[in-house]
Simulated assay, not measured.
Amino acid sequence: MPLREHLVELRRRIFLAAIGVVVGAVIGWFLYDPVFTALQQPIVHVAQERGSLIALNFSGIATSFDMRVKVSFFLGVILSSPWWLYQFWAFVTPGLNHRERVYAFGFLGVAVPLFLAGAFVAWWALPNAVKLLTEFTPTGATNLIDAQTYLGFVMRLMLAFGLAFLLPVVMVALNFAGIGTAATWRRGWRWAVMIAFVFAAVMTPTPDAMTMLAVALPICGLYFVALGVCVLHDRRVDRQRIAAGLPRLDGTMDDEPGGAGATA
């Protein structure tokens, strides 16, 4: 596909994904009250636990309206995740045959739960993060947290974790599209593990190692599961290429040393 057609297709997929987010935001508008109550619950709990004044502060006349709009769009991203994830898959893998396009259902069946699981892990870590970060408030002082700053913190945390848990699905999608081979992912596993632990350490601002491990280990496990799927897919592609008289993905032929037809 020429570059211009790629750009047109990208614009189309982004537009369709944006429409889905807007539709989800409309639904999120009506879910604002219970969701906002849940969002501020960690702050309410810490305030009650310490018997001090810690609360969200709406500092401007339009802040409450801005909060409702932002929470609605945040919910729109969460609710429409199956739709925009499908748009991503459809853009990355446009050249798949009919049989391989069926994998889109498997892609969504894995990607959506993983994205939601990542968001849930962030939600699980949020109370500890709020408790730790508000511990620096001096005794007798009040801590009026800017509502929009707090919301931005929660949104970044949940989206970052959701996208981090999507890493294995992106790996498989790129592998199916012929962009990244299993050998590429295998060579980079040490970097992947290091990045997973650095990400967990930065995104979980709590002093205990257990929270960091609870975040990093699932990401590492998902990476290796995705690597296994890529290995199986590359083996199937190699068999098809050899049958057609083409070299393997690594450039070797069947009768070359190290190939399937080589003797010991």
Rank of each mutant, 00 (worst) to 15 (best):
L85E: 00
A104Y: 13
F165A: 10
A18R: 10
A104Q: 06
L53Q: 05
A209P: 05
S64K: 09
A25Y: 08
F120N: 06
L116F: 15
F36R: 11
I61N: 02
A264T: 13
H6F: 01
N143F: 14
T63N: 04
L227I: 06
T134K: 10
A244L: 07
F115Y: 09
A216D: 08
E256H: 11
H45F: 08
E135R: 14
A122S: 10
A244F: 15
G180Q: 11
G140W: 13
G106F: 02
L75E: 00
G258R: 13
G228F: 11
A160D: 07
F165H: 09
F73R: 06
F120P: 01
G178A: 10
P82F: 12
A192G: 12
H45V: 13
Q40L: 08
W83D: 13
W89V: 00
K131A: 15
A62V: 13
R13L: 00
G109Q: 06
Y223Q: 05
G106R: 02
A125I: 12
L10Y: 07
S59P: 00
V112N: 00
R248S: 03
V110I: 14
G221D: 04
L159M: 15
L56G: 04
F199T: 01
G228S: 09
D146M: 05
A38M: 15
T63M: 09
V231K: 01
T149L: 14
P127F: 01
R186N: 06
M203I: 09
T93S: 12
A173D: 00
G28T: 05
E135D: 10
S59V: 10
A147T: 05
F199Q: 02
E100H: 01
N143R: 12
C220F: 15
A214Q: 12
P205H: 13
L85M: 11
L249R: 03
D234F: 05
I54Q: 04
P207S: 00
G76Y: 08
Y103N: 08
V46K: 03
Y103G: 14
P34A: 02
I54M: 02
F91H: 07
F120M: 09
P42R: 07
A164Y: 01
V237I: 15
V77S: 02
V229F: 09
A117Q: 13
A177F: 04
S59Y: 03
M171V: 02
K131T: 10
A147L: 07
E5C: 00
P138W: 05
V198Q: 05
L174A: 13
Y223A: 03
N128A: 12
I242H: 08
A209E: 10
A173Q: 01
L217K: 06
G152C: 11
L39K: 04
W29S: 07
I19K: 01
C230F: 08
R156P: 02
F73H: 08
V92N: 03
A111Q: 02
S52G: 06
S52F: 00
V46S: 04
N143I: 14
I78N: 07
